[in-house]
Amino acid sequence: MLDWLGFGSHDHAASSHGHHNHGSGPHGHTHGVVDATIATTDRGIWAIKWSFVILAITAVLQMVVVVLSSSVALLADTIHNIGDATTAIPLWIAFMLARRKPSPTFTYGLGRVEDFAGIVIVLIILFSAIVAGYQAIDRLINPQVVTHLGWLTAAGIVGFLGNEAVAVFRIRVGREINSAALVADGYHARTDGLTSLAVVLGALGVWLGFPLADPIVGLLITIAIFGIVWQSARAVLTRMLDGVEPGVIGEIHHAAQHVAGARIVDAKARWIGHRLHADIAIAADETLPLSEANKITTALEDELFEHMPALAAANIRFSAGHEQHALPPSHGHGEHDGHKH
């Protein structure tokens, strides 16, 4: 199962020790057979492809009803669905580029293109919000009669079902391959599904004799889209600035507690696309022979990959420094670090 998700093969980088292979447990794989990135990006491309198909069909069906009913709420929802389908394009390009092997120029590969795709997605969502908002405000100023309320209700329900299906695809696969862009896009689709249900409320308001219910719902949908822009932008920019979730560093320290002699003095981590890379310094015991030191780094690698399935590379080194270094609060004690990074 780990191999299928792309987490069974790792690029270990324990500097100066040369351990690139696990001989036991769930990580007993030989490197160079199947590149983990290909497995995960194939999975990502599969999710994107089906998301695009579902949303494209949903948008076409809704557009037909927009023409029939003149509903600006449904128009806003349709614009959003078109924008959501369009986001499949930068994601697909990013996943394809991520499959390329590292080069002398791009020594870590092109995984960061995925973060750039996330920014493009945020801009697409922002554009759809501006267009939908303009249409809703214009309809409030210049009201029009909304017709075909039955079809309008059906279109709202279709929009909800289509977006929920896409949300399930993107969130599930995004979590499997640890892609912030894909997960963000999935939550965007889920919220879009809820805005589709708002179209139904607008149709009900018009049916009850309140014609402004339609543009008001359109405006509420616009506000919801702006909320998605803010949330998605925060998540993607955090990754682009080498930010990690608070629990990542804590998990590195937790893994080290299972290895005798692996006293961490510094730990850093960053995401490159959907692959986590860690740089770890452990306290050096100068009395240890090289063979024992190698056993410690190998054991720590095993524990790290056991505890962190999204980890792609662990660069472990020894530190002989004596400066105080704070650990995460959950560990409640200090260690030492004498390296500049």
Rank of each mutant, 00 (worst) to 15 (best):
M1N: 08
S9K: 09
H10N: 15
H17S: 12
H17Q: 06
H19R: 06
N21A: 13
I38H: 13
R43V: 01
W46I: 04
W50Q: 09
S51L: 01
F52K: 08
L55Y: 07
I57N: 03
V66P: 03
S69G: 01
S69N: 06
T78M: 14
A85N: 13
T86I: 10
T87W: 00
P90G: 09
L91G: 06
F95E: 02
R99M: 08
R99N: 08
P104M: 00
S128D: 06
A132E: 03
N142A: 14
Q144R: 13
G150P: 03
T153I: 08
G156W: 00
V158Y: 00
F160P: 11
G162M: 04
N163D: 09
V166C: 14
R170K: 15
R172H: 12
V173P: 05
R175F: 09
E176S: 12
L182C: 06
A184E: 03
A189I: 10
T191K: 10
G193H: 08
L197R: 11
V199P: 02
G202K: 01
T222R: 05
I223T: 07
V229H: 05
S232G: 05
A235T: 13
T238A: 14
T238Y: 11
R239T: 15
D242G: 12
G247M: 04
V248W: 00
E251Q: 09
H254A: 14
A260Y: 01
G261K: 13
A267Q: 04
W271S: 07
D279K: 11
T287C: 00
L288D: 01
N294E: 10
K295T: 15
I296P: 10
P309V: 04
A312C: 10
A313P: 05
A314Y: 05
A314M: 13
I316A: 07
R317N: 10
A320H: 13
A326W: 06
S330R: 13
H331N: 01
G332Q: 12
H336Y: 07
H336S: 09
